[in-house]
Design a protein around this nucleic acid. Structure first.
Lengths: 220, 220
DNA sequence: CTATTTCATATTGGATCCAATTTACAATAT
DNA sequence: ATATTGTAAATTGGATCCAATATGAAATAG
């Protein structure tokens, strides 16, 4: 007889754990740009040797989140205003197309899940969670497209500007504005109006771009 | 007195050397999809230990060129027809916009270098070099845009479909057709007609997509 | 003979150790 | 005082060793 062997707890590799933790710390700004990542220090924090740390750093570098120099180590990548603008331009190109193709494929569950996301975003009084909830809302809708490669690329772009986007939400009326735009996008999706959802998404991103440009100097 | 100290030969790390070599081997199809990458074997080939090999594989996985399973190792990623189509769609979205923004910034040197590329492409009788020359042509033009992030993303997309694109150039009249389209794109750039260059680029990519769909089943 | 179970081998993941290089700082010369 | 040089400490890159897991073949039960 064969037992239904269920994977109770699939332990992730140390390297993956370190990678995810560092990625999160970087995109949330817990480690500032330019700050060095000391292998030894990180290894001690995770009770591992430096080997998994080095693999994690290799992966972070491939993602563009850190820059390394031989024998000098890794530092967290920064973004110039120009580079940040470029990434917003990139998003403004990709995301409208992704949501346009996603709209006809959205299930009731998808729309409900997205509504939950913007409701939580709207109701949250904790600025630290805004960034996550914002990403949740958009990625829930995008996932309906089934365009995995596009989704991966968007994730990377978001990772690079996450810090600046969070700062953006906190300052001025960034939060309120984003919230209103989310609702409008969501309503277009519910109405099945793919073109409108795409255009609203484009405006949502372009607007964030313009706000960021105005404020980027005060952020550094 | 201070001498002009010039870095004569900056040695790359073993990990980088292995990474570049494996990347090249994968995108050119020298290691087939599904084929396992044995750390020990690769380490022996490069006269190193497995440590740099593992870092190289980590980076390749982050790029999506290999897939790894814990304790089972890495295998070269394949692409389903659907995934290949998605990447062509992605390129058809990005590259026209990049060349559109590049055209007004193209110097005489850029145009000359691109002409050299398509001339070499056109004249080459070696199918193995077609893929490289094709990429050279496009990236020369794109680089004028100065959009580094876009360029990086395009490079990754190209890496994933490189194998299939090469096969595409070899079969039927792929090579002749690509050549004619390159010349048309180049002429639009010379004329400073950004919109036309963008539209021709879009058609160039869509055309390749359609050919690939028709032939992808015979490729596997 | 077939299915299951050992058990040896192969392979990967991680720890420890050593070498190469950079960095910080003291010593010295101008 | 300032700049240069020498040297020790800190840090990274890589090699070797050990542990954890998978794979495959032999042994065994039915």
């Amino acid at each position: 007889m064969k037992l239904n062997s269920v994977d109770i707890s699939k332990t992730a590799s140390a390297s993956s754990i370190v990678f995810e933790a560092l990625r999160k710390a970087i995109i949330e700004g817990d480690v500032k740009e330019g700050e060095p990542l000391r292998q030894d220090e990180i290894a001690r924090m995770f009770n591992t040797s430096r080997i998994p740390v080095r693999e994690a750093i290799s992966r972070l570098e491939e993602q563009g989140l850190v820059k390394t120099q031989r024998y000098k180590g890794a530092v967290v990548s920064g973004l110039s205003a120009t580079e940040a603008e470029e990434i917003f331009d990139f998003r403004a190109l990709i995301e409208p197309e992704v949501i346009r193709r996603a709209v006809p494929l959205m299930s009731a569950e998808t729309l409900d899940s997205a509504r939950t996301s913007w409701a939580a975003f709207s109701a949250s009084s904790d600025p630290m969670s805004w960034g996550d909830l914002n990403r949740d809302f958009h990625s829930t809708l995008y996932q309906a497209s089934g365009l995995q490669y596009h989704l991966d690329v968007i994730d990377n772009a978001m990772d690079r500007i996450d810090r600046y986007l969070r700062a953006q939400l906190v300052m001025s009326n960034g939060m309120e504005r984003a919230n209103e735009e989310h609702i409008a996008i969501w309503e277009a999706c519910v109405a099945g109006n793919a073109k409108q959802a795409a255009e609203l998404t484009r405006l949502h991103i372009s607007g964030a771009r313009e706000s960021l440009i105005q404020n980027i100097n005060s952020l550094r």
